[in-house]
């Protein structure tokens, strides 16, 4: 029985799932960027949690992807860790035309997510520094230390 078509179909489906996930992630990142721009803590946290949940699903998909790539490695008698989507498409030839198209879309989407994530990270870090500076300027304790430091327990019996 030729397993290649089956594996290709499964991998194409998995890549399509990944593409959908990246698109959802991009939407969430857009929302988070707006929340950061508007400096709305509740929305920042809410969108962050949604992003985190989406990231958690990414791990599940990664395990499924590893299983499929191991299948391809066994089929072609190569080490599982050496295969990528591109090497699979290369080895499968014309049978992987659909996978090639989906992989291209996934690459573009992932690149957009990466850029968006970098920008959000930079933006959040800059906002955080700015907020911290103003907090320190307005509320820094005279004894030193940071305003965002937690309290300190003292021995009441001392």
């Amino acid at each position: 029985m030729n397993k290649l078509p089956l594996l290709l179909r499964h991998l194409t489906t998995q890549v399509t799932d990944e593409l959908e996930a990246q698109r959802r992630l991009l939407e969430l990142l857009d929302a988070q960027e707006l929340a950061i721009q508007a400096a709305k803590p509740a929305e920042i946290i809410a969108t962050g949690r949604a992003v985190e949940a989406e990231a958690a699903a990414t791990a599940r998909r990664a395990r499924h992807r590893d299983v499929l790539l191991t299948g391809f490695a066994n089929l072609w008698n190569v080490k599982p860790g050496t295969l990528t989507f591109s090497s699979v498409i290369e080895r499968a030839g014309p049978a992987a035309a659909a996978l090639r198209e989906t992989r291209d879309e996934l690459r573009a989407a992932t690149a957009r997510v990466m850029r968006k994530a970098r920008r959000i990270r930079t933006l959040a870090a800059a906002h955080q520094r700015l907020t911290l500076e103003i907090l320190e300027a307005l509320f820094a304790p005279e004894s030193g230390g940071s305003v965002v430091d937690g309290g300190r327990l003292v021995n009441a019996e001392a």
């Binding site: 988070q32 950061i36 400096a39 803590p41 509740a42 920042i44 946290i45 962050g48 949690r49 992003v51 985190e52 990231a55 994530a117 959000i120 990270r121 959040a124 870090a125 906002h127 955080q128 907020t131 911290l132 907090l135 965002v148």
Partner: peptide, 12 residues
């Protein structure tokens, strides 16, 4: 806000 920005960085 400060904590949210910090959390956002972590998520990212």
């Amino acid at each position: 806000q400060e904590q949210a920005f910090n959390a956002a960085s972590q998520y990212i």
